[in-house]
């Protein structure tokens, strides 16, 4: 039987409340959102926080809205809400692609976007989605808030730029014209983490790719961007050959580890194939050839 180590528990009534509790207690204090990464880790004693600060009552952290030229998503927004959002499906279809295959329905009822990003598990899907879309995140602490790009957010496996007394409050995704995005994943069985997954976004203007983002899950020690492939795509015209070449580059540049989900060469192979497929669908969507 797996049971977490003894821990204290507190429910935050406001964001300020949560930040001051974190500040008062130092490194032993931990935010709990959906708890679907943290509780399994506590049961295995891989995490032994002294104090849990439950933010589930903070309804003000749960929203998906379009504001100016951005989509803003509150940290406590759950997978099921991302899956069902028509706004996201229309503007950023990569979210629905990914959410259909993240975990299973009961897990999707609880897990949050904030928890997913802060867990910083390389196999997790939303980090790659947000990386491909060049999102930024808002982090609040005792001194106020700061906005951090996802490239600076991941500082190592299971490590992020969120400091001791800080909370991730919002994910911001820029909306730019000519956008298309898609997610491709291979898993061992329904509900499992990816063997490998790729999120791709392209922005096309007058038949030319003006910018591209490719995020890789389970293909390195942290969520990775396939930056060489992104460079190759920029200023080129979308074509099958181009996407295949980008796939080859992603496959060469990634650095997967062998584990129970598969050996390195298989994961590299998947990186290539999934990059090609994700780019193909993202580009068709940008060109309104597919929804």
């Amino acid at each position: 039987m797996q049971t977490p180590a003894p821990v204290e528990y507190e429910r935050a009534a406001s964001l300020e409340d949560a930040i001051s509790s974190l500040q008062g207690r130092g490194p032993g204090a931990r935010i709990i959102a959906g708890g679907h990464s943290l509780i399994p880790m506590m049961k295995l004693r891989l995490a032994t926080p002294e104090l849990l600060i439950d933010i589930n009552d903070l309804a003000e952290l749960s929203y998906i809205r379009e504001q100016g030229d951005e989509i803003r998503i509150g940290a406590l927004t759950r997978h099921v809400e991302l899956l069902q959002s028509d706004l996201l499906a229309e503007r950023l279809p990569v979210f629905r692609d990914a959410e259909e295959l993240i975990a299973d329905p009961p897990v999707r009822n609880r897990g949050t976007i904030g928890g997913s990003l802060c867990q910083a598990d390389a196999a997790e899907d939303l980090s790659a989605v947000c990386s491909a879309l060049k999102a930024t995140v808002v982090i609040r602490g005792p001194e106020g808030q700061r906005v951090v790009g996802l490239d600076e957010f991941y500082v190592g496996p299971f490590m992020t730029a969120v400091g001791e007394a800080e909370i991730l409050t919002e994910v911001r995704i820029p909306l730019r014209p000519g956008a298309g995005s898609a997610h491709e994943k291979v898993e061992r069985r329904a509900g499992d983490f990816a063997i490998a997954a790729v999120a791709a976004a392209v922005w096309i203007d007058g038949g030319t790719i003006v910018d591209a983002g490719i995020g890789l899950s389970a293909l390195g020690p942290t969520t990775m961007r396939a930056t060489h492939a992104e460079e190759l795509l920029r200023a080129s015209s979308p074509s099958e050959e181009l996407f295949a070449q980008a796939g080859t580059m992603a496959s060469e540049d990634c650095s997967p580890l062998a584990d129970s989900r598969g050996p390195v060469d298989y994961k590299r192979h998947l990186a290539g194939v999934l990059t090609k497929r994700a780019l193909r669908r993202a580009s068709a969507r940008a060109l309104k050839q597919e929804t």
């Binding site: 709990i32 708890g35 399994p40 439950d54 009961p106």
Partner: peptide, 11 residues
């Protein structure tokens, strides 16, 4: 639906 092995009673 919620997996009751993955929630603290306190929550």
């Amino acid at each position: 639906p919620l997996k009751s092995c993955t929630a603290l009673a306190a929550m």
